[in-house]
Amino acid sequence: MIYARGLVKRFGEFTAVDGIDLEVAPGEAFGFLGPNGAGKSSTMRMIGCVSRPTAGELRILDMDPVREGPAIRGRLGVCPQTDNLDPDLTVFENLTTYARYFGIPRPEARRRAAELLEFVQLTEKSGSTVDPLSGGMKRRLSIARAMINEPDLVLLDEPTTGLDPQARHLLWERLFRLKQRGVTLVLTTHYMDEAEQLCDRLVVMDAGKIVAEGSPRHLIETHSTREVVELRFGDEPPAAYVEKLAGIGQRLDPLPDRLLLYSDDGDGAVDEVHRRGFTPSSVLVRRATLEDVFLILTGRTLVD
């Protein structure tokens, strides 16, 4: 579905995407994970054939995005990072007018609009204009709109950023259903849990480069320990404890508010901390997540 080699995007002197390689297979759910400014959206826009690659090779649906842009876009569903719905049109009209851009006949457009509103649970809002909708409803409408042409490949740029947990779970559930139908999904996210929930495979991006690639499980296994201990201390800043606890576990990462201790045996490591005579004000042993992988790979946290 997507094939990229040495893909580069520059804005003037600034390199937003710095030579990335990608392959996405049909039916896959593929994720870009990375902090602000990593180049996720820039990459998505190149894949969506609205931004021209500065260098490198890119093929979408086995076509050339520069020469065959309209043909490719006709088979893509795009949900951009910021909604660009028509505020003066009703929810229903937003879908039907968009359908016409793809040359879908009017009766068919109405049929699909009704079906998609059902799918994203917005049927009740069908006749309302877009302006008064909540953020989560707008997002759901954007996703429904991206499905209007029954796309082969759906691009979702931060589908759930800014939503409350309930709205996010509803969206995840809908996206999961799309995936089950065999739609190829490509999404970007800041959220580890989102990537873990939805993606078969993902790349971690940082400063325009891909720093790791694989399934969520695989990334955790190769880059992190099985468990992570979060230690908080009342007296001194976490960094002060790095030396004192040296040798326990495989790795220590001081964050401003806590110290992360990586170990395959979390409880054993906690015992060792106590044996050395330190009493943290709080101790949490948990399984490693992609967040830890990101921290290990880039030295920074994802959501600042």
């Binding site: 609205v50 876009r73 795009v78 951009p80 660009n84 505020p87 851009y101 042409n149």
Partner: peptide, 12 residues
Amino acid sequence: VKGYHAMRATPV
């Protein structure tokens, strides 16, 4: 509104 950006993502 970014209506033109929305169109840009389609075959229009």
